[in-house]
């Protein structure tokens, strides 16, 4: 029964629905629906001794939607065109500064803590949205599962930090705050930016797509040069 594609798809839908429900009830950034779904499914498979390969039969059916999902991000970028046009220079330069900071802090800290190359490659896409992070792993190498895990962890850190940054650094304006959140903590951070204000939310959304693109263009050549 568990070798039917229906099994993997159904358990994913149920586990994710539970994750969403918990998130809505608690309204806590730590209650990430994806994280909850993953914990539920792994616990279920372990508890009933169902092999990962059986889950994967149905899981692959969902996984194939990541291609069209990435393409659909183009619509998200298009919807932010007014904000992007209005703050072109600040956005592009600010985001590029953030992308470079993310890259070089990871390289420096990884060298200091003696992480192996596979791990470094998996960490480098951590600040960009998952579909784009996976695209970067596709061309630059790394372990996709670690990348996804660290993208989620980054998003949660970013969402927790964002309100503190607003309090600690009153000199930063709403546009800079939104840009910083979207660049450092993708969609999970953006959900917090939307709560902070309309400008913060719009800029954070625009920054997700731009930061992803700039990261994918800059990181592979930089990696060749510096690691």
């Amino acid at each position: 029964m568990t070798t039917s594609p229906a099994f993997g798809i159904l358990i994913s839908i149920i586990a994710y629905a539970i994750g969403l429900r918990i998130k809505e009830k608690t309204n806590n950034v730590l209650a990430n629906p994806l994280l909850i779904a993953v914990i539920i499914i792994i616990a279920f498979l372990k508890a009933f001794g169902i092999p990962y390969e059986h889950y994967k039969i149905g899981g692959d059916g969902i996984h194939y939607f990541l291609g069209p999902l990435t393409v659909a991000l183009g619509l998200m970028l298009f919807r932010q065109r007014a904000v992007i046009k209005a703050h072109m220079v600040s956005l592009v330069v600010g985001i590029t500064a953030g992308v470079l900071t993310s890259f070089f802090t990871i390289i420096a800290l990884s060298k200091w803590l003696k992480l192996d190359a596979e791990m470094v490659k998996s960490l480098v896409p951590k600040s960009i949205t998952t579909p784009m992070a996976l695209s970067l792993v596709e061309i630059n190498g790394g372990n996709a599962v670690i990348t996804i895990a660290m993208v989620i962890v980054t998003g949660i850190f970013g969402a927790l930090l964002a309100p503190l940054f607003v309090k600690w650094f009153p000199e930063f304006n709403a546009i800079a705050i939104g840009t910083g959140i979207g660049t450092s903590a993708h969609g999970v951070g953006t959900s917090k930016a939307i709560e902070l204000g309309e400008t913060e939310g719009a800029l954070s959304s625009a920054a997700i797509g731009l930061a992803g693109l700039i990261t994918i263009l800059l990181v592979p050549p930089l990696y060749q040069l510096f690691y």
Binding site: G94, S102, I106, I146, F157, G180
Partner: peptide, 25 residues
């Protein structure tokens, strides 16, 4: 180690982006 790196890198990335954007604006 990777969680520590992620935390430090996220803090600095967020701060630098906000600082540079504020200066440019």
């Amino acid at each position: 180690k990777i969680i520590l790196i992620t935390l430090i890198s996220t803090i600095t990335t967020m701060w630098v982006t906000m600082w540079v954007t504020t200066k440019l604006m």
